[in-house]
Design a protein around this nucleic acid. Structure first.
Length: 264
DNA sequence: TCCCAGGCAAGGC
DNA sequence: GCCTTGCATGGG
């Protein structure tokens, strides 16, 4: 145990299971007594110390303090959301969800893989891409060709991965400028420049990789949620607009509570 | 066996 | 612009 580098966090507003299993990251393992999590080339271990506290063991305290968004007050967020449609129920089920601050590059690649795919398979493909448990840098990933991605089971996404990896490695795409754009403009920038990134994947990248809350990823589960709320059906684009109108500047948070609640 | 999964690109209109 | 179609692969 690396006592000096442990982060101790209040368990109020942070339930490890909710935060890790709500579909925002893919590189974690439930090891029964603890969870193991990897981000880029870093690793941490999380477990409940007691009824009120969580321990995060790592070799980079600062990185994981930021990663777990520990400076944000989730009590206030949940308080402001709880009167909106389906939120009381969803928050009560996923009360310990936090939105992680993940690497934009790792998030872009991971969510291209996620399209029309199931979570166990997404996890397997990402694991195969990693080198000694570290997520490859853009220049490393760009050395793999389409055939490689196909061989590890990426299916028709192999072409998207090869294309996007190369674009990012060659800096034909400005991964940093997105921080300065609002959700709408950032979404357009991603969709129109990266193969394999459509409106939904772009919103996931913006929510999990850039911590933008004025987005609303609409996937198959959120489509069901939409019908629960509005008792009608429409296309994903219209759903997204209406959901952002409904949940406002807290849309990103709301979406995660709703997704976790619906998916179970 | 069949349907589904954190949808997308491409082509037709 | 919007709508439809084809798509790799494994889980349930």
């Amino acid at each position: 145990m690396i006592t000096d580098n442990n982060i101790i966090v209040e368990r109020k507003d942070f339930e490890i299971k909710h935060t890790l299993e709500c579909g925002q990251l893919f590189r974690y393992k439930d090891c029964n007594t603890h969870y193991e999590l990897r981000s880029l080339d870093k690793k941490c271990i999380l477990y409940n110390k007691n009824k009120n506290e969580i321990v995060i063991e790592s070799e980079d305290k600062n990185y994981f303090h930021n990663y777990f968004d520990l400076d944000t007050d989730y009590s206030e967020i949940k308080h402001n959301l709880k009167s909106l449609p389906l939120m009381a129920e969803s928050i009560s089920n996923g009360y310990g969800i936090r939105i992680l601050r993940q690497s934009p590059f790792e998030t872009i690649i991971s969510f291209i893989i996620s399209a029309n795919n199931n979570i166990p398979r997404i996890q397997k493909i990402i694991e195969k891409i990693c080198i000694n448990d570290a997520f490859p840098a853009p220049s490393e990933l760009a050395q793999y060709n389409e055939q490689y991605f196909s061989d590890i089971g990426a299916g028709y996404r192999a072409r998207y991965l090869a294309s996007t990896a190369k674009k990012l490695a060659d800096k034909e795409f400005d991964i940093d400028i997105i921080h300065q754009l609002n959700g709408m403009d950032a979404n357009k920038y991603l969709c129109s420049n990266l193969l394999g990134v459509g409106e939904k994947v772009a919103d996931c990248i913006l929510l999990f990789g850039y911590h933008k809350m004025d987005v609303f990823p609409v996937d198959t589960w959120i489509k069901k949620v939409y019908q629960d709320i509005f008792k009608t059906n429409t296309n994903a684009k219209a759903m997204r607009k209406q959901l952002i109108d409904t949940y406002g500047e807290l849309s990103g948070y709301a979406q995660q509570y709703l997704f976790y609640n619906k998916r179970g």
